[in-house]
């Protein structure tokens, strides 16, 4: 990402809705379910184009997930969407039995994840959903970093056989990847090479991490930034390769520091290559109302916080 390029902003949920409506033409087996949030999750774009393949299940998320499993078992490719808080916590047993244990080809696409839901406050800010989804066997977990990656992930999801949890956001975020980017499940991507510290980030925090890397550069620190969109399966090889090179790791996620990206990455490091590490994420508390940027700053998820964590890691090397 060069400083000279004009930064385009787009919410990942918008990219999802548009891509799904586009893919609906090519793939007649795609069906879409929502739970009275189709305007917000953007599945309504599909619903308007293909009304007979769109099922609003009402405010009944459990019914939505079960129905998606039944559709999948009958050869359909169901995408089920609602906010991330409901798409995991509200339907956890349904995800566990009807989707993950049964290994049904259900794509749960959750929007409005993390603090950047903003003003709606703690009830609607999912900070646990990566952890909840990640611990389920058979479940692939992907957190796209921008609109471009979201489109690639949705294209991938249609062809992939098996349950997936895809985590998207509400707010407009910078588009940092170019359209030639290719998504591969189980693969991370080095967006910026460096030798002093590895910043492993996911979702909208990838752009923040790139900003942090610029700040660190001014202080003479050469940070590597990795987009780890594929949280499960995780790109162990890339994490270890980068950690070996830099000797220190910072994980960055718009999620609790318990159970999400940080846990996934530190598990791999602890077992294979224990290096100093710091976690940037929400520190085991609920969020609150506020603007997305205010919340990211208050809860320690700003580029400044990432840069500070990187410096702490370097001091511990």
């Amino acid at each position: 990402m060069g400083n000279t390029r004009e930064v385009k902003l787009k919410a990942t949920r918008d990219a999802y809705g548009e891509k799904l409506a586009e893919l609906g033409e090519k793939y007649e087996d795609i069906v879409v379910l929502d739970a009275d949030l189709a305007k917000s999750t953007k599945t309504l774009l599909f619903g308007k184009k293909f009304p007979h393949r769109f099922f609003d299940m009402g405010i009944a998320e459990q019914s939505m997930i079960g129905t998606a499993a039944g559709l999948a078992l009958s050869g359909k490719i169901p995408f089920a969407s609602t906010f991330a808080v409901f798409a995991t916590g509200r339907v956890y047993d349904q995800l566990r039995i009807s989707v993950s244990y049964s290994k049904t080809n259900v794509k749960v696409v959750a929007t409005h994840s993390g603090l950047t839901v903003g003003e709606d406050g703690a009830t609607h800010q999912a900070l646990e959903d990566i952890a909840l989804a990640r611990v389920l066997p058979n479940m692939a977990v992907v957190v796209p970093c921008d609109a471009v990656e979201t489109e690639k992930v949705i294209e991938f999801a249609v062809e992939y056989q098996g349950p997936m949890y895809i985590r998207l956001g509400r707010s407009k975020v910078p588009v940092i990847l170019d359209s030639g980017y290719e998504f591969k499940l189980g693969k991370g991507a080095v967006l910026r090479e460096g030798k002093d510290v590895s910043i492993v980030a996911t979702g909208i925090m990838v752009a923040k991490s790139l900003e942090a890397a610029e700040m660190l550069k001014e202080r003479g620190i050469d940070a590597e930034v990795i987009n780890m969109s594929s949280i499960k399966p995780l790109d162990n090889e890339l994490i270890l390769k980068s950690a070996k090179k830099t000797g220190g790791v910072v994980t960055v996620e718009e999620h609790s520091i318990i159970g999400g990206l940080s846990s996934a990455v530190l598990e791999v490091l602890a077992e294979n290559l224990p290096v100093p590490a710091e976690r940037v994420g929400v520190r085991d508390v609920f969020g609150e109302s506020g603007t997305p940027e205010e919340l990211l700053a208050k809860y320690g998820l700003s580029p400044k916080d990432i840069a500070a964590a990187a410096e702490r890691v370097i001091r511990r090397k």
């Binding site: 019914s63 997930i65 129905t67 039944g70 349904q94 009807s98």
Partner: peptide, 25 residues
Amino acid sequence: VEISTGSLGQGLAVGNGMALAAKLD
């Protein structure tokens, strides 16, 4: 066995999905 069950309450919704698919097809 058409769907894994045991945690009560989930079978009817899965049946709905199968029935909807039949209608679609």
